[in-house]
């Protein structure tokens, strides 16, 4: 019988720890499919971050390093400078990349570091239990913005792609979403393009994936997808922000 669906080779055969309905699983799979199709598994080194995706080193069947909170782009830089022919990627959430790791992200981009960042934005801290993230929307209720995020005291959500687009060193920056099948297909295409950018030696690539957190948003998985569309997409428009 012909196999029409199978686990990507670079995705480990283990049960993931993510909550039911979480879109991390989808994004992991898309990353793995892109890697398989580009046939780069043997020279791939991934960098896991801190947050919900902290265990991603267990889920990708390639060499992995676990980074301190926010430092994944610096760790990736170290690896890439030692092995320039390896393909090096980080997988980071919004707290890791856009709060504690802002400097590492921006300066890796400014150096045009030839690495790929998969940035998962679900507008909340998941692992620690639903606190406000740098990408939490105005008015959004979290454990540490119980009255809704208030611009006066808590500032504005950061638009990472828009910011990185202004930086000379970035080669490819796109925002995508995994809220429906069409967008999921587009996400895979973007991730593949980001890796291809690195393979071609063009420099820094980042794909921001709008994602859901049903557990900490307090919504069902399906409601979450709707919430993402109605609330996140208007503030975080999809599209290519930079392409060299």
């Amino acid at each position: 019988m012909k196999k029409v669906f199978q686990r990507p080779e670079v995705l480990s055969d283990v049960v993931m720890h993510y909550c039911p309905g979480c879109t991390h699983g989808i994004i992991h799979r898309l990353v793995a499919e892109a890697i398989d199709e580009l046939n780069i598994q043997d020279r791939l080194v991934g960098v896991a971050s801190v947050g919900c995706s902290v265990f991603s080193y267990n889920y990708f069947e390639c060499d992995m390093q676990q980074a301190a909170h926010g430092r994944a782009p610096a760790v990736a830089t170290g690896i890439k400078r030692v092995h320039p022919n390896n393909i090096v990627f980080t997988y980071q959430g919004d707290g890791d990349l856009a709060a504690i790791g802002t400097a590492e992200m921006v300066h890796a981009a400014a150096r045009g570091e030839n690495i790929t960042i998969i940035f998962v934005n679900n507008a909340i801290y998941g692992m620690t239990g639903g606190q406000m993230a740098p990408t939490t929307l105005l008015g959004q209720v979290t454990q540490t913005s119980p009255y809704g995020r208030n611009a006066e005291t808590q500032g504005y959500p950061i638009k990472v792609c828009e910011m990185l687009a202004t930086i000379e060193g970035t080669a490819y920056v796109e925002r995508v979403s995994v809220d429906n099948v069409k967008n999921i297909m587009a996400t895979k295409k973007a991730i593949k393009k980001a890796f291809q950018t690195q393979i071609d030696g063009k420099g820094f690539s980042l794909v921001e994936v709008l994602s859901t957190c049903p557990t900490n948003w307090g919504l069902s998985p399906v409601e979450s997808l709707g919430w993402l569309r109605e609330n996140m997409m208007p503030y975080y428009p999809l599209g290519i922000y930079k392409e060299k």
């Binding site: 080194v45 980074a67 430092r71 610096a74 760790v75 990736a76 170290g78 690896i79 400078r81 030692v82």
Partner: peptide, 10 residues
């Protein structure tokens, strides 16, 4: 952390 990455890479 770059040192960490490079050391990890051997």
């Amino acid at each position: 952390n770059m040192v960490y990455g490079a050391a990890g890479a051997g």
